[in-house]
Amino acid sequence: MSSREIAQIVEDYLKSVSRVLTSGFETEDMLEELETHINEAFQNKVQERPLANKIDLLREVLNDLGEPKEIAEEFKRADVLLQGPEEDDRRTFWLVVRFAINMVIAVVAAWFVSTLPDAGVSFYWALVVFLMFGLA
């Protein structure tokens, strides 16, 4: 058992948590907090029981923290409670704005491609292709 092995177990745990959470600044923030928590809890357990197997102590720490799925569920729940109807309205507004911008870009790009002398592409055909790219 080495400190590298311990670091690997911690890294694996944090990766599992990260996989079940949506990516973002807040997730990174929480992962950092979990890492600090693990280090402190582990050092504390080692001080309390210096003769115990360190891997076992680390497993205890991770078990006390909970399954990544449990943390993710609580995180999602907290986020849902924070997002009221205003947040939904804001999200819809930005979706509409994004769609409108995509439309304008697609029309301009289709017009440009259709005016190229050697392209041989019709405006509507180019528009459909650019819209598909924009919506993807």
Partner: peptide, 10 residues
Amino acid sequence: KEGTLYPILH
């Protein structure tokens, strides 16, 4: 489970 405290703190 201690890990579930962090979403609450958040």
